[in-house]
């Protein structure tokens, strides 16, 4: 089954300038679910909702239909902050400070597990 349905000659799949999209779009929310006690929250996707309550209810309907949710978070996508992709390698530690790694240190076997 293909979703790359062929483009018919003469048709364009791009949105026209000035097309009215003003149906008061509901903002985008990111959904995080912790499936079970002991695990951490995982980002599962996003959805549109007008307010936090419906975002939560919708997230529950969409992402926990098969009982996979001990804890559910929704966060407005606009509230998620991140490094610029260009900056990230500058700001996140390159592995130069090897003294941070446990493998750098030689502990004699007789000492036991450390």
């Amino acid at each position: 089954m293909t979703y790359e349905v062929p483009v018919v000659p003469g048709e364009s799949a791009d949105i026209d300038e000035g097309t009215d999209l003003s149906t008061e779009a509901w903002p985008l929310w990111e959904v995080f679910v912790r499936a079970r006690r002991g695990l951490s929250h995982v980002h599962l996707g996003s959805l549109h909702a007008a307010d936090p309550e419906s975002a939560l209810q919708n997230a529950r309907d969409v992402y926990t239909r098969r009982g996979e949710g001990a804890s559910l978070w929704v966060v407005r996508s606009s509230e998620i902050h991140s490094f610029d992709p260009e900056e990230i390698s500058d700001f996140i530690e390159a592995n130069e400070k090897v003294y941070r790694l446990a493998t750098t240190y030689d502990i004699p076997d007789e000492v036991g597990h450390m």
């Binding site: 799949a13 949105i15 097309t19 999209l21 149906t23 779009a25």
Partner: peptide
Amino acid sequence: NRDELQELLHQGRH
């Protein structure tokens, strides 16, 4: 935006 994509569907271009 999802609404843009939906508009393309409604217009028959998607």
